[in-house]
Amino acid sequence: MYPALSDPTARSIATLLEWYAASGVDIALEEEAIDRLVAPPVAAPVLAPAEIPGQSAPAANSPSIAAPQIAAPDGGEASRAAREIARTAPTLEALRAALEAFDGCSLKLTAKSLVFANGNPAGRVMFVGEAPGREEDLQGLPFVGRSGQLLDRMLASIGLTRDDVYIANVVPWRPPGNRTPTPEETALCRPFIERQIELADPDFLICLGGASAKELLGTTEGILRLRGQWHDFETGRRRIRAMATLHPAYLLRQPLQKRLVWRDLLTLRAALDETGA
């Protein structure tokens, strides 16, 4: 039972909000769901009154009343804009600024923060997940919640810290309620993460989870079969060695699978050692 609010004082309201937060309620919703991918309804046109016998018709040069024109969002136009903006960003700082100004993705409307990156952009290893969660949205940094704490321990197990790696997500805004990003949202954000990888130019790219691997490695193979194998990621400048592994959030639900990720981490460590890390 939630706290009673018969006396709506500031303290009772704060108590209710604390109860909501403890229960996992972290976003306000309306009574009816809003599909932000659907174009808003176009207002009905205002018609001129019908000509009535005995009344003079409006003069030919009198101003007419036109129906308001509301441009429907064009997914194709937004995709073209995203590709052009990403392509022309000369630095990571410019790419971040471009994402801050980009209004083509509806996820920006419900997210608190742009979650661009964390760690060292000059690091030899770049990790890419799918999308930020609640804690990441609040702090504006990727992998800072429970999954991020596990990722830190994963890095430490092979002698790395966040100062040694660069971390980002395919989608830089948190989907409402931590839902899975739609294929349209992911496709719209893909040019930005591809450019981010190109500008960071790591030696090794690690896809955290099946969603990230699907987008960046262009495969439909399941993550359990895909993980642990080296692939090539083309940036347009050079080929980067890429590997998929299990997402830390999955490991929190399936801790026995940590043994698989340990093998993947040892493979990464060996590659770093072989190339002079």
Rank of each mutant, 00 (worst) to 15 (best):
L224E: 13
T219R: 01
L155D: 07
S64P: 10
F143N: 03
R153L: 10
S212E: 07
V115A: 01
S157R: 05
G129F: 08
A242P: 02
R153F: 01
V170C: 06
R190Y: 02
D203W: 01
A86F: 00
K108I: 08
A66L: 11
R179I: 09
F192Q: 00
K108N: 12
S106I: 14
V170A: 05
A44C: 09
L266I: 12
L16C: 12
S113C: 06
A14L: 11
W230Q: 08
G24Q: 08
D137E: 04
K258E: 14
R269Q: 12
A71V: 12
P73S: 14
V165P: 03
L138Q: 10
G228N: 06
Q257C: 06
G119C: 06
L29Q: 14
G145K: 01
L252W: 01
V25I: 12
R269C: 02
R239P: 03
A67E: 15
I70H: 15
A213C: 07
D273I: 08
K258W: 07
E32F: 10
P90I: 09
A82L: 08
D26L: 15
N120R: 02
L155G: 00
P49K: 13
D163W: 03
L208T: 02
E31N: 14
E100V: 15
N178C: 04
R124S: 10
E136N: 04
P175K: 04
A249N: 10
N169C: 05
G177W: 01
R36N: 11
A244I: 04
D264L: 09
G276C: 02
G209N: 04
T275R: 09
A94P: 01
G210F: 01
E93V: 09
R259V: 12
S79R: 12
T186Y: 00
A111D: 07
P58W: 15
S56D: 15
R134M: 06
V46E: 13
R162S: 03
R263F: 13
A131C: 09
M154V: 00
L138A: 12
Q229L: 12
G76P: 05
A117W: 03
W230K: 07
L109P: 04
L107Q: 07
L260G: 01
A117R: 07
A277S: 08
D203L: 11
L268M: 08
D273V: 09
L208W: 00
I223T: 04
V261A: 12
V25Q: 06
G222W: 00
I167G: 02
V144I: 10
F127T: 00
G119T: 01
I240W: 10
L37T: 13
A21R: 15
I13D: 04
E136Q: 05
T182A: 07
M154Y: 02
L109S: 14
N120M: 03
E274Q: 15
L150W: 06
P73L: 14
A211H: 12
A4Y: 09
D264K: 02
